[in-house]
């Protein structure tokens, strides 16, 4: 579904690029401009320390997470308030996922996985606010998240199991002749994991937002007929709300699955 949208978005970007080239000043649709990284306080040069809209929206994500998880739970009610219920649901959801998918001994990774989930889900939902900036739509961000998971899994695997961790690539249940070939395939798939892990998240988020922007451009151009694209925007927005959560969920559960390989490579 996400992939389909990605392609649809790309096609729309191309079509809009052809149809609404800069010469047609009235119909300019720039669906990718919403992803631009800009300095908050002016200036064209963006150094690694420059406060940008990335900084702003990540800060807002931190604020939102504090508001729900820290302030929401500050009453410590036996009967929870609404915010506390949300905090407890998020906690229970991820805790159960880590326990069920990765195993009881993976609970020490729970704060790390919870950090990933809370950041992604918060950033995705903040990105659905009109005129906002979506940090998780950038490959730079999702790639770092994916590489962090990859590095964590690999280091944990070697620390816990040493050379036996390589048994992950040696499929002992397959016939001996097939094993080297399978090993190569397994090795490639192991290194492709972080790539798919990061592209899936950023691609889905970016595609949905680009589609929204394209439809918004149509709405601006069509005048009285704008109800059609507005209806489409509403529908796509509803889908994007779903995608915002599902992609965070998918990223998190894949992290759990990868970690399971590191903790129990034999399975």
């Amino acid at each position: 579904m996400g992939k389909l949208f990605f392609y649809v978005a790309l096609a729309l970007v191309l079509v809009s690029g052809v149809l609404f080239a800069p010469e047609h000043a009235g119909l300019a649709i720039h669906p990718m401009d919403q992803f631009g990284v800009e300095s908050l306080f002016g200036g064209d040069h963006i150094a690694w320390y420059t406060p940008t809209n990335v900084t702003l929206w990540m800060l807002l994500a931190v604020v939102a997470i504090i508001a729900v998880l820290v302030l929401g739970s500050s009453n410590r009610g036996i009967v929870p308030s609404r915010a506390q219920s949300v905090a407890e649901l998020a906690y229970g959801f991820i805790y159960k996922m880590v326990e069920d998918v990765t195993g009881k001994d993976a609970v020490k990774f729970f704060p790390y996985i919870m950090t990933l989930f809370m950041f992604i889900v918060t950033a995705n939902f903040l990105g659905l606010i009109p005129m906002s900036f979506t940090t998780t739509s950038h490959f730079a961000v999702t790639a770092v998240l994916a590489v962090l998971v990859f590095v964590t899994v690999t280091i944990t695997g070697f620390v816990l199991h040493g050379a036996k961790f390589l048994g992950l690539f040696w499929v002992s249940s397959a016939p001996l002749a097939l094993r080297p070939i399978l090993a190569i395939i397994e090795l490639i798939s192991y290194f492709v994991r972080p790539v798919s892990h990061c592209i899936r998240l950023a691609g889905n988020v970016m595609a949905g937002h680009a589609v929204l922007k394209v439809f918004a451009g149509f709405a601006g151009a069509l005048g009285a007929g704008a109800f059609l694209p507005i209806f489409a925007i509403t529908a796509v927005y509803a889908l994007e709300v779903l995608v915002a959560f599902i992609q965070a969920y998918v990223f998190t559960i894949l992290t759990c699955v990868y970690l399971k390989d590191a903790l129990h490579p034999s399975h």
């Binding site: 990284v37 963006i46 150094a47 690694w48 320390y49 420059t50 940008t52 990335v54 900084t55 990540m58 940090t135 950038h138 730079a140 961000v141 770092v144 998240l145």
Partner: peptide
């Protein structure tokens, strides 16, 4: 912009 994004991330 990668350096900036990665740093703040």
């Amino acid at each position: 912009t990668y350096g900036n994004q990665i740093f703040w991330l």
